[in-house]
């Protein structure tokens, strides 16, 4: 592959890095407990917790690094951090 060296880079192009591979713990969202407040999405440092059509929230596991802020901040304790591969 020939690298075309320009001095500029394209917007949003880090999306090629699937940082989900970093994860040790995986947040599992329990919609039964969820109050749809959206705090999980607001405080996700990756900006990858999205609101579904039904109003509930889910992370994009391709990018989720498993930091656990969403679980820690959820007022309903509706997000559980589960060890990957279990």
């Amino acid at each position: 592959m020939k690298l075309i060296i320009k001095t500029v880079t394209k917007p949003g192009s880090t999306r090629v890095n699937k940082t989900g591979a970093w994860r040790s713990f995986m947040p599992v969202f329990d919609h039964k407990l969820c109050s749809k407040c959206g705090i999980c999405a607001m405080y996700c440092p990756e900006g990858i917790v999205y609101k579904l059509e039904n109003g509930y929230y889910e992370p994009d596991y391709e990018f989720c690094k498993g930091c656990g802020i969403c679980a820690n901040e959820c007022p309903k304790k509706a997000i559980l951090m589960v060890l990957e591969g279990k």
Partner: peptide, 27 residues
């Protein structure tokens, strides 16, 4: 060709690691 423009939001002044830095100098 490229300027700081919200309509075409390019990034200027990226960080280059050993895999690309040499080519910037060569250019």
């Amino acid at each position: 060709e490229f300027v700081l423009d919200p309509k075409n939001p390019m990034s200027f002044g990226a960080f280059a690691d050993p895999s690309t830095y040499t080519e910037f100098r060569y250019k």
